[in-house]
Simulated assay, not measured.
Amino acid sequence: MEDILRPIYQERASQANTLGVLMIKKRLKDIPVTDTFDAVLLVLVTEADSPVSIKHYTYHDKKAALYIVTENQLNEWLLLGSNKKIFDWLYEGKILFDRNEYIQNIKTELMEFPFYGRKLKMGLEFAKLIRRYMNGKAFFENDQYLDAYNHIVHSLHHLARLAVIEQGFHPEVTVWQQVKQIDPEITKLYEELVTSHEPLDKRLELLFLASEFLIHSKMKSGIQHLIDVLAEKEYWTINEMICHKEVQLYSVDLTMLLEYLIDKGIIEVVMKETKGQGVFHRYYKLGKKLS
């Protein structure tokens, strides 16, 4: 297959804005990280008209895909974890072209996983975790058990990803296989939820009790990024937080996360008068309960 695709990737490699080319081959009886294609060519470029461009090819009974991805899009995927298979592609792909060791440097950084990057990713996962958990609890309290189940499954997935990141690893496609080695208690909780023969309401009730403890155990590492940002000044409006270049990455979940942290005494609300009688601006500051 590589010989067939050689003219395609060689053409791309000759272009000045191409940073690197990887080939990912389909592995038998494996998770379809190539989306069932026999091979994927990943071409990384400095810039393009579109962040992602895809082409499909057929040769006899084989099929291949070409992905042209900009550097900015790749960095976003790596930061937000919004494209799980990209990690597998970078780990397992064969380097066909690498300008100034661009791809090799990315692979080295992924293996080392700098602590700052971990803090930000943990903040993203914890914010998503809290939204899912609180939504699930609200549905549960309103006897909407199937909706509660859906949200709590997602919250456990974010908890699992958080545990993996905390230990210095990137969550991959097989995140439950990873977390089984890292934090088996989370895996056990997940298995009890999805395999137990107890009535659904009883399963959820027990899970909310158990997961509260696990969430609390991950809270310190999960909110450290936000705490570091808020320490930059004494008072913040919600808009100032959302507009912060790093906090805006999880701004969708920020309001619910703030309410959770206010309830835990980690963030305090400061009221400031407006021109309207009895109406106050809400400002936020770090509380004293940070241990």
Rank of each mutant, 00 (worst) to 15 (best):
Leu261Tyr: 09
Ser221Gln: 09
Ile238Lys: 11
Lys245Leu: 06
Ser221Cys: 02
Ser211Asp: 11
Glu234Gln: 10
Leu249Met: 05
Gly222Ser: 04
Val252Ile: 08
Ile227Leu: 13
Ser211Cys: 13
Leu214Trp: 07
Thr237Gln: 11
Trp236Leu: 06
Leu257Glu: 07
Ile242Val: 09
Ile262Trp: 03
Leu214Ile: 15
Ser221Met: 06
Ser221His: 04
Phe213Arg: 14
Tyr250Thr: 05
Gln248His: 07
Thr255Gln: 11
Tyr250Glu: 00
Glu259Val: 12
Met256Trp: 08
Gly222Lys: 04
Glu234Lys: 12
Lys233Cys: 10
Leu258Arg: 04
Gly222Asn: 05
Trp236Met: 08
Leu230Lys: 11
Tyr250Asn: 04
Phe213Asp: 05
Met241Tyr: 04
Ala210Asn: 12
Thr255Trp: 02
Glu234Val: 08
Leu214Tyr: 12
Thr237Met: 05
Leu214Pro: 09
Phe213Lys: 14
Leu226Glu: 06
Gln224Pro: 00
Glu240Val: 02
Val247Gly: 09
Gln224Asn: 06
Leu258Asn: 07
Gly222Asp: 03
Glu246Cys: 01
Ala231Trp: 04
Asp263Ser: 08
Met219His: 02
Ile223Gln: 00
Ser211Met: 15
Ile223Thr: 15
Cys243Ala: 13
Leu254Gln: 10
Thr255Leu: 11
His225Phe: 15
His216Ala: 13
Val252His: 03
Lys220Tyr: 01
Glu240Leu: 03
Ser251Pro: 02
Asp228Ala: 07
Leu261Gln: 06
Leu257Met: 08
Met241Cys: 01
Leu254Gly: 08
Asp263Thr: 10
Glu246Ile: 03
Ile227Thr: 10
Val247Glu: 10
Lys233Asp: 08
Leu254Ser: 09
Glu232Arg: 14
Gln248Val: 07
Leu261Ala: 10
Leu254Lys: 07
Leu226Cys: 09
Val229Asn: 05
Thr237Tyr: 12
Asn239Met: 13
Ile262Val: 14
Tyr250Leu: 05
Glu259Phe: 14
Asp228Tyr: 03
Trp236Ile: 09
Ser217Leu: 09
Glu232Thr: 06
Tyr235Phe: 14
Gln248Ser: 11
Met241Glu: 01
Met219Ser: 10
Ser251His: 05
Leu226Arg: 03
Leu258Gln: 02
Glu246Trp: 07
Lys233Gln: 15
Lys220Cys: 04
Thr237Phe: 07
Leu254Ile: 12
Ser211Ile: 14
Tyr250Met: 09
Glu246Asp: 11
Met241Thr: 03
Ile227Ser: 03
Leu230Cys: 15
Gln224Ala: 12
Asp253Leu: 11
Tyr235Cys: 00
Glu234Leu: 07
Asp253Pro: 02
His216Tyr: 11
Val252Tyr: 06
Thr255Gly: 01
Lys245Asp: 10
Ile238Phe: 14
